[in-house]
Structure formats: C-alpha cells, structure tokens
Computed example of a mutant assay.
Amino acid sequence: MIPFNKPYFTGNESRYIEEAVKSGKISGNGNFTKRCQHFFEQEFGFNKCLLTTSCTDALEMAAILLDIQLGDEVIMPSYTFVSTANAFVLRGAKIIFADSKNTYPGFDEHSLERLITPRTKAIVPVHYAGVACNMDLIMDLAKKYDLFVVEDAAQAIGAYYTDRNGIQKALGSIGHLAAFSFHETKNIISGEGGMLVINDDNFVERAEIIWEKGTNREQFFRGEINKYEWVDIGSSFLPSEIVAAFLWAQLENIESIQQKRLQLWNTYNEELKDWASQNEIRLPFIPEYASNNAHMFYLVCKSLEQRSRLIEFLRENEILAVFHYVSLHSSEYYRKNNEYFQLSNSDIYTERLVRLPFFFELEINKVIDVLKKFH
C-alpha cells in the first residue's frame, strides 16, 4: 500500500534528541528551541517566533493576545481545519464564515468587506495548500476597519506572497500574528508541533508571558526582573527540547526537502494534465501573486460520485488518497446553534476535493500510472 503520508527523517533527528537528553535540559525553551526560533526569524523575516506544542496552541495564543471576548466576531474561511475556529470559539467569539474562491480553496477576499460589522475584531486568512491569500486586500480591510489579521499558515512554511509593489514576503510575516504547524503531514515536521509568529511589537511581551503559563519567567531569565510570578493568563504552550531537537534536524535540511517536494509536485502537475482534462478534473491553481511550497497535490473532481469512485479505485490498487475538510459552516457542531446557509464554492471543495499521496520518498510514477487507468 502506498500511504497518503510518510514522515521523512533527515538522519540527525535521533542524534539531536540524544544531545538534548544528555544536556540535562529536556523541558521547553532550551538551546534547540532558541536555535529553531532564531532560524525562522532570520530565514523568513519574522519579527518574533515562539515554538508551541501545535499550531492549534499557536492559534489559541493568538486569540488570547487579541483579547477575544464573548460576542466578538472573527471572519475566516469555512473550508479549513476545525482548529482555526476552535481557538476563537474557546474565547467566546462568533465565527463568521467566508466562501472559497471558485479557482482554489482559499477564501474569497472580495467577499470579506460585506461580512464586517461593528463587532468584527479579526480576520483569519488560511493559506490553504501553502498558497497565499491576497494579503494586500486583507491588510487594506484591516487598516480601514481597525481589525487584526492572524495568518493561519499551518501549511505555508517556505511559501511567499508578492505584494502590489512587487515585494516578495514570506507567508506568516504579513499579518499581526501567524500560526504554523510542524505536524507529521507538513513539509517540515516534529511529529506534533507548531509556532506562533508575532509581527506586531505590541504583542511580544505579553506573548512570552502567555507562553510561559502566565508568568514573567522569560524576563527573569534575561535578568530584567529579580523574581518571576503569575502576572496574566496563560498555559503550557511551549514544547519540550526533544521536539525542538527533532525540528532542528529538519530545518538544517529545509532547502533539500522543499526542492524534492517541488519536484514531485511538478511531476504530478505535468503528467496528469491531459488525463485530468479528459476526466473533467481540475488540478491545483496558483495565483500569480503566490509561490508554491509544494505542501500538497489535490484534485477537484467533477462530482461527489466521481471522487468516491476515484478514491475507491486507488484503494483497490493499494494507493491511499483522502478527501479533506467538511466545510465548518455545515458541520454538526456549528449547525447545533446556527441556521444552515450555503457557501457554494466551499461546498464544492467539501464534496469534490481529493488529496493524492505526497511525501518525500513517494514512488510517484506508480501513483500516476494507476491514475491514468481511471476513466
């Protein structure tokens, strides 16, 4: 069976984990944590980075930092993972769902302004498949209505956005805050793991406090205060040094990992063009302002029936492909307390999108050969 995903190990993960263990410091915020955070700040121009135990935790930290209160409204795409919404619902927010574009699953930026009300506090663009949302339009709206922007960049490590002035910016460096994932299905992994990026200096000091369980321990360790104590709400958001050591081995090889993934993505895209056209299947779309970090390769089938048949056909040939999110506006939890409404493009991706196997050591020609037999 060719799996949907297989974690890639560079070879140094075990060595660095052993190094962390032998150092006597395996709780969070040690040497490997600081190395990783510094790497991201230098490599991608992020203002301040804090590793977290997951992208979910990073989003929950963002919701706390924005002081989300009961009744505040947060705009986000419906076609996203549940963590995007949960982080803000836990603080009492009302989620306002935006539709996807008809060209790709990222949300339709042109539909956002009509969703803004006096209670709107934040916009959460999700860079689906590592493909940038139109951040110029989003940041313009945020400035016009005095809103915060939290980039859900879970899938977007190493991806870029070219702004209206032709300046290329790393995804996660544009919004006030951003959240990344290093889950084993992502390009760069640590099993579980994530990162909060703080681009607005106004949030840096409090972010450290929330990260350290609501204490000012970071300031104490830097010698800025003579004792540390409980000063705010917070939680145990920082990962262990073992997780950070694993991540560091990945970061040392980020360039080769990204190059190989892009090679695989381009092979899928080139080899499946004619087959997809013949079967009325759409391949991924990359807007001109977005780069491609080769996070995933997906297909958009012409119907739910076709997708079901395709997934079953691949399974019969020992290849595991999966469909992705059920749009959150149509989910059981959301519909308990809200009336059903239609988001036509989001609903299409719910019913028709399928993700092909995609990982560093993929025998891609086997998958392509099988796919070409499906009609």
Results as ranks from 00 to 15, higher is better:
256 S>K: 14
43 E>V: 13
125 P>E: 02
361 E>L: 09
300 V>A: 06
277 S>N: 13
366 K>Y: 05
68 I>K: 03
117 T>K: 07
263 Q>C: 10
175 G>D: 04
132 A>M: 10
142 A>P: 05
213 K>D: 13
179 A>Q: 01
162 T>C: 07
314 L>H: 08
316 E>Y: 12
372 K>C: 04
157 I>C: 04
309 R>E: 14
241 E>D: 09
89 V>E: 14
251 L>E: 09
186 K>M: 15
360 F>K: 08
342 Q>V: 10
165 N>T: 12
159 A>V: 07
24 G>R: 09
160 Y>K: 15
232 D>P: 02
155 Q>A: 15
332 E>K: 15
345 N>Y: 13
102 N>F: 00
123 I>D: 02
242 I>C: 00
225 I>P: 05
64 I>H: 10
265 W>N: 05
152 D>K: 03
288 E>R: 05
365 N>M: 11
232 D>I: 02
368 I>F: 09
151 E>Y: 00
166 G>A: 05
121 K>P: 01
282 R>A: 14
374 F>H: 06
55 C>V: 10
335 R>D: 06
222 R>H: 12
374 F>G: 02
322 V>G: 04
275 W>D: 12
38 H>G: 05
265 W>Q: 03
37 Q>S: 13
344 S>V: 09
359 F>N: 06
20 A>G: 13
95 I>W: 11
54 S>I: 08
85 A>T: 11
262 L>W: 06
